[in-house]
Design a protein around this nucleic acid. Structure first.
Lengths: 339, 339
DNA sequence: CTGAAAGCGCTTACAG
DNA sequence: CTGAAAGCGCTTACAG
């Protein structure tokens, strides 16, 4: 009996099975791979027995090396503690698994240098594709993009050239938020966003402002509030300070994410401002927690659980040699449960 | 020039570098691995040039096969959409990375059959260790445990024999919750939990009840409310129905997780019960969101961001041939921000 | 100081 | 119907 104290690291290889069954490893390999009609029924049976007897499981390392495909895909995400990214990670993992791939997960903490470290490490792992969730521009990333590595960008577009993309239509989402507030006759709406640049923020804010203006409100009637840092919660809290005294709060505000909205809400609570009575808030994301903890929040819901299948579809099409494409995911407005 | 259109999948191997530099692959290998004093300075230089010129990056597949170590670790988590597990995943990933390992992430959706599929798939990937977050009992798992696969259980203990474990001291956490309520002179405290069995739930409830009783309150004065299903939010909401009419609500309740508490709170809100004024709630987890969205919630805080390093430490010690150990993480009470 | 060779586990054209 | 051999990329004892 072979030493099987450590399954998977143990020495159970094709050779073990071959010896046990008294055939060549070529024959075993064929049978393991279902090439079963090319062998005698008797041999097939004997090999199957042997496989069971020794507890054989194919070694993907050997396969990967030989077939030049690791069936590994890397996801580089900016911050897994963010529930939006966690949901995207979960749905992508499920979709990859279904397609027969395995997901390596990397948390870049939104740092370009770490992102580059990870890109290099993943190349060394011979991953077959890269899923970049809310990536940052970085020298390494530029390099990979230019060399045509199979990459799908999620939520944030590639900062370098045309690449596959899965995400919401941020402009449209911003417009939808504007419509909601304007339909409720709010005439000096505010918009709350991170000071730090990003295409997502830019587009959402733009979609919002353009629609407000298109509906006849002068640009200078839009109140803009931004906040520093990286945590959207803190950003919302800090940005809302611009509303200073209670009587200066706007009657309605759009926040570029639900988390920003939570931050704004906290300051409102501390300031005695009633949400949504005094100030209607509309966020973007449609977090499932809203129904439970933020019934005061209206949100433009993005179907993050459906990102996974789209991401895998785009990856597969890149592998098939097709050009990069974009999947803009639909949104829908989820009105506040409570007035 | 070699075809480098697909970095990492391209044909840039030791052989490429060797040819470019006019040396053997053995020499290149040594230099790549820092075995630099055994070669002439001139050769080292020439090889370094060649590495740059052809854009060489070592292939981990080859290394793994030869060295019999993949540097891959699998995490099987019950549900990544749960923020607690997302945080554990993030911290584990970071700690593994720091130790030079790469994390494959699998979401088992709390299903024993999927868990077994993943275990087998991961063995085929030749992972060197398994991190089981809130695992279920399953035949495959039993098998792996019995064969001594290097495994660390997180949050829920192994259902089979002694295994390494990282998690809170659930009994103590339950006691702490009891103390909080009793210190506030609540004499008929409630406890809210999932109907479905799990060691975590059992221990937290036990810790709570034992302490309540120890402090002189008869067991039958503890109001027990459970709810069906898998979502802790829904469980809390359903369980709180046991409190039926508003006047029947307890003056204090401990929920075995923050998410259960959110569910209870939703029903309270819908029923016109004021939290925490009418009913003090204490949860377990200490979600970072509490300060923002659930200022009414007191919570026994578990340091999930610190799980990662402990998990890796236990894994490393298993690799070193040491016996399984347990790391019980400390908790602290985070009182509600709002009264 | 450097290289040829063996071998990690696998698959596949080729020969018989 | 079956097997010997080559080779995927790598490292390492061994020989020179």
């Amino acid at each position: 009996m072979t030493d099987e104290s450590r399954p998977g690291v143990g020495p159970v290889s094709l050779a073990t099975v071959a010896a046990q069954a008294g055939v060549s490893i070529a024959t075993v390999s064929r049978i393991v791979n279902g090439e079963t009609r090319r062998a005698s029924a008797e041999t097939v049976e004997r090999v199957r027995q042997a496989i069971k007897a020794v507890g054989y499981h194919p070694n993907q390392l050997g396969r990967a090396l030989r077939n030049r495909e690791s069936r590994l895909v890397a996801m580089l995400a900016a911050n897994l503690d963010n529930p939006v990214m966690a949901t995207i990670a979960a749905s992508t993992e499920a979709a990859l698994r279904q397609a027969g791939y395995v997901m390596i997960l990397c948390d870049t903490h939104d740092r370009p240098d770490l992102q580059d470290d990870y890109l290099n490490a993943m190349r060394s792992q011979v991953v077959q594709g890269y899923v970049m969730v809310a990536s940052q521009p970085s020298p390494g990333l530029r390099d990979f993009v230019e060399r045509g590595a199979p990459m799908v960008f999620v939520s944030r577009r590639s900062p370098f050239g045309e690449c596959s993309f899965v995400g919401p239509d941020n402009i449209a989402a911003g417009s939808a938020a504007a419509d909601y507030l304007l339909d409720r006759s709010i005439e000096e709406p505010a918009v709350v966003y991170p000071s730090r640049e990003s295409s997502t923020t830019r587009e959402r804010v733009k979609g919002f402002c353009d629609r407000v203006i298109a509906r006849g409100i002068p640009a200078d009637r839009i109140r803009r509030a931004d906040g520093p840092g990286i945590s959207h919660l803190e950003i919302g809290y800090a940005a809302a300070q611009h509303f200073s005294a209670p009587h200066a709060w706007p009657r309605g505000a759009m926040c570029i994410s639900d988390q920003v909205a939570y931050g704004v809400h906290r300051l409102a609570r501390e300031s005695g401002v009633q949400i949504p009575h005094d100030c209607e808030i509309v966020g973007i994301d449609g977090s499932p927690l809203n129904a439970w903890l933020a019934p005061w929040l209206t949100s433009v819901e993005i179907p993050h659980p459906e990102f996974g299948p789209s991401i895998v579809e785009l990856l597969v099409s890149l592998w098939g040699g097709e050009p990069p494409r974009e999947h803009l995911m639909p949104h829908r407005l989820a009105a506040a449960l409570e007035r």
